[in-house]
């Protein structure tokens, strides 16, 4: 196996170790039930993080994910009150996410503005728009929401793969195909590896940048849809800070913030590790929620140090 998979393998190994450790500590932990719940409960954030993975591999960043999740929920809840079917409003919001991302990509490329700044502006803008629409939580009452949460596939051993988790897995497969079996996917890696060289190698810079952010917008909107259906409501503060959780998932998944290196599948495991930690601490019962953040932070730190070490030993550059 090629050494480029080492970071991905490390991420998967950490997940497996944590899962087994949980099983040794708590009697009912080691089950498909817990696994299914972790997938379902974190599906929305993992979906958004999958989109961000492309942005980060290309050497950019997207900070407007959390606000997008909140905004999508608020709009869907209001359209629900106006009698729209959730699937119709979901489709509208996904198109909105794609359009929004395209615009962001255009501004980044055409005006040569740092992705950090423009997506930070997007973070404030979308959050502000949430509050323009509603100040309080609005429920989504359409019976489809209940049907959605009842749907799923039973797993052997009593577990349950919820519809959120299924959406996430489909989104993952699509993303893996885009990343590794399309010309666009290769262009994303090329731009992140060395933008100047990519340009001289004939990579269409503008088209690719536009597509990268459109993809990220689409995935974060889809994350918002799943979140709205999962919580059956729209709340203007929903998703605050989730952009950072998404970035953490991407980094835990072995993608380098400097761009050029990373895997979409890694992000899923990165997000699941964070979910697994939360579950472990809930199982404990006596530890308070602060420990979720503290252990998440520690793990992130350890991972980044480990990556430096791994990447250093890969000898990407040969000496003189």
């Amino acid at each position: 196996m090629s050494e480029k998979y080492l970071p991905l393998m490390a991420t998967i190994a950490v997940f497996v170790i944590l899962f087994i450790a949980g099983g040794l500590l708590y009697p009912n932990f080691f089950s498909t039930l817990v696994l299914g719940n972790i997938l379902g409960d974190n599906a929305f954030i993992i979906i958004a993080a999958i989109g961000t993975t492309f942005v980060i591999i290309s050497g950019g960043i997207d900070l407007s994910i959390g606000s997008m999740i909140g905004f999508v929920g608020v709009v869907m809840a209001n359209l629900d009150s106006a009698g729209w079917h959730p699937l119709a409003s979901a489709a509208l919001m996904i198109v909105f996410g794609a359009g929004y991302g395209t615009l962001v990509g255009f501004i980044i490329d055409f005006c040569e503005i740092q992705p950090f700044i423009i997506t930070l502006a997007g973070l404030f803008l979308l959050r502000g728009m949430c509050f323009m629409i509603n100040l309080d939580a609005v429920p989504i009452k359409n019976p489809f929401v209940l049907e959605f949460s009842d749907m799923g596939i039973p797993l052997f051993g009593g577990g349950w793969l919820s519809s959120s988790a299924i959406v996430m897995l489909v989104a993952l497969v699509v993303a893996v195909i885009i990343a590794h079996w399309t010309e666009f996917g290769s262009a994303v890696y090329a731009i992140g590896g060395d933008a100047q060289s990519a340009k001289l190698m004939g990579v269409p810079m503008r088209k690719t940048t536009l597509k990268i952010y459109a993809l990220s917008g689409t995935y974060s909107a889809l994350g918002g849809v799943v979140y709205a259906l999962y919580t059956s409501s729209g709340y203007p503060l929903a998703g605050s800070g989730l952009e950072l959780v998404a970035i953490a998932s991407v980094v835990l998944g072995g993608t380098l913030l400097t761009g050029g290196v990373g895997f979409v599948a890694g992000t899923v495991f990165g997000g699941m590790i964070l979910g697994l930690i939360a579950t472990l601490i809930n199982f404990n019962g006596s530890l308070n929620g602060a420990w979720i953040m503290i252990s998440g932070g520690l793990l992130l730190f350890i991972f980044i140090v480990m990556h430096r070490f791994l990447v250093g030993s890969l000898k990407f550059r040969a000496g003189s």
């Binding site: 590794h180 079996w181 090329a190 190698m201 290196v261």
Partner: peptide, 30 residues
């Protein structure tokens, strides 16, 4: 060009075929 222009983090295959990747059923045929 004067400074070798390749993407050091990408595989030799990708570097050589980027922009003209062969396809089968719309997807890249690695």
């Amino acid at each position: 060009y004067q400074e070798v222009n390749l993407i050091p983090t990408m595989s030799v295959t990708k570097n050589l075929t980027l922009g003209r990747l062969p396809r089968k059923f719309g997807l890249i045929d690695w």
